[in-house]
Simulated scan of single mutants.
Amino acid sequence: MTGQSFAMPLWLMRCFRMRLCKTVWLTPVVNSIRLKKTERITRDISNWKQMKSVKSFFDHTPSEGVRLLIQILFMFSKLYEIEKVSRENEDSVQERLERRQRDSLPVFEALKLKVLQAKNGFLPKSPAGMAAQYFLKHETGLRVFLTDRSIPIDNNPAERTVKPFVMARKNFLFSNTSRGARATAICFTIAQTAVLNGLRPEAYLTYVLDQFRKVGLRDEVVRDLLPYSDKLPDELYVNGIKPKQKKS
């Protein structure tokens, strides 16, 4: 993946969080942070015994560095909250882009300034220092989602897609030949693409092989059998329901 199409990796946010965990008394607050749940963060911090509100939390924080890292995590959380609202509203790709330009861009610019402060304030080899350097080094790629409506905010979908392969390799260990490795990769790609399109992989593959047996392997047949084809029968989908087509 090139620098121009970087997606925001979760380890970047975890590095900032890791530095916070070194402050033992702050651990309850750090552990309450869930990057996609701004409301829960606010509720948990507000209810924390030592703090009556988020404002009093910041007023009583003894370390400027810790305060800065908490602010950075809140901004990350806000970016994810905006994406969540977009999904819940079933925004079209154009509406998603407009929402990102209107709501996410100002947050990202503020986040960049805070990360720059972290870079200048923490040791270069510390988790927070390295995370800040990574963010600034790849800033151009990390902000692509703000101008390209087809780019997700992070690489979670890709990581979830390759996870079954990583887990399964413990069973088959190695491929004896390059052709075998390629065939394995193709099989996993088809299966995971089926999952992403709401299909039951076993039922889908059974149906595809049966169709090849009946009508042969031709280009027009293959097109109609692709996991994202709208000509597949409903019974192949989870709960027998074909997902709605996203608005363009």
Rank of each mutant, 00 (worst) to 15 (best):
3 G>E: 11
3 G>D: 10
3 G>P: 02
4 Q>G: 15
4 Q>S: 13
6 F>C: 12
9 P>M: 05
14 R>A: 15
17 R>G: 08
19 R>A: 13
20 L>C: 09
20 L>R: 00
21 C>E: 13
21 C>D: 11
22 K>Q: 15
22 K>T: 12
23 T>H: 12
24 V>K: 14
28 P>A: 04
35 L>Y: 14
40 R>Q: 13
40 R>S: 14
44 D>Y: 10
48 W>G: 04
48 W>L: 14
57 F>W: 09
57 F>I: 02
58 F>Y: 15
64 E>C: 13
64 E>W: 04
69 L>I: 00
71 Q>W: 04
72 I>W: 00
72 I>V: 09
73 L>G: 08
73 L>T: 03
74 F>Q: 07
75 M>N: 12
81 E>Y: 07
82 I>F: 10
86 S>C: 11
86 S>M: 05
90 E>R: 10
90 E>S: 08
91 D>F: 00
94 Q>A: 13
96 R>C: 06
97 L>T: 01
97 L>M: 08
97 L>W: 06
103 D>C: 12
104 S>C: 07
105 L>K: 14
108 F>W: 11
109 E>R: 12
109 E>P: 04
110 A>K: 10
114 K>I: 03
115 V>W: 01
115 V>G: 02
116 L>K: 15
117 Q>R: 10
129 G>Y: 07
129 G>D: 01
129 G>H: 04
135 F>T: 03
137 K>P: 06
140 T>K: 08
148 D>T: 02
149 R>I: 04
154 D>F: 07
157 P>W: 03
159 E>F: 05
160 R>D: 00
160 R>Q: 10
162 V>C: 08
163 K>S: 11
165 F>T: 09
167 M>N: 07
169 R>D: 06
170 K>N: 15
170 K>T: 05
172 F>N: 08
176 N>A: 15
177 T>K: 02
177 T>Y: 01
178 S>V: 13
181 A>E: 13
183 A>T: 12
183 A>H: 13
185 A>V: 01
185 A>L: 09
186 I>A: 10
189 T>G: 06
198 G>C: 02
204 Y>W: 08
209 L>P: 06
212 F>W: 07
216 G>M: 07
217 L>R: 12
220 E>W: 07
222 V>K: 03
224 D>S: 12
224 D>R: 12
226 L>H: 05
230 D>W: 03
233 P>G: 01
237 Y>Q: 01
237 Y>F: 10
238 V>K: 12
240 G>W: 06
241 I>K: 15
242 K>G: 03
243 P>N: 03
243 P>I: 02
244 K>T: 04
